[in-house]
């Protein structure tokens, strides 16, 4: 099995490589919340507008975690690339970010 980094693309192929085998859908999801302090600050910031740094960080962390979980699934299947990766965000609970990453695990050469 290829232990090096898994390639991610959001198109149907990995440019310059040939897909030799595919393993189907892989998915990674996570849901995280910020503590009440950040929530309160954010609601104050809502009055004057601007970037909500706490939430930007929250979403970034969540996205990274969802991606790494998806990559973990691909590794389990013996893939070395994930093509056509899609990201989705949903608000399942108030103040929490739910991130979902999914794609098709493939082996390239």
């Amino acid at each position: 099995m290829n232990e090096s980094a898994i390639l991610l693309t959001n198109i149907d192929s990995v440019p310059g490589k040939t897909i030799v085998e595919h393993f189907g859908l892989v998915q990674g999801a996570t849901i995280r919340a910020k503590h009440i302090g950040t929530d309160t600050l954010a609601s104050l910031k809502n009055i004057i507008g601007g970037e909500l740094k706490g939430y930007t960080k929250l979403l970034q962390e969540s996205r990274e975690e969802a991606t790494s979980r998806m990559i973990e699934q691909a590794r389990q299947l013996g893939a070395n690339a994930i093509i056509n990766v899609r990201f989705a965000t949903s608000s399942v609970a108030k103040g929490a970010a739910e991130l979902f990453a999914y794609g098709t695990a493939v082996r390239i050469e």
Partner: peptide
């Protein structure tokens, strides 16, 4: 549990299985 986690912040493990189950079931 999720409500308490919302106060403290961090990964909401309570919701993880919920979403995982719903997704796999839908697929």
């Amino acid at each position: 549990l999720a409500g308490l986690r919302n106060i403290m912040g961090g990964r909401m493990t309570a919701y993880e299985t919920l979403i995982d189950r719903a997704r796999r079931e839908a697929i």
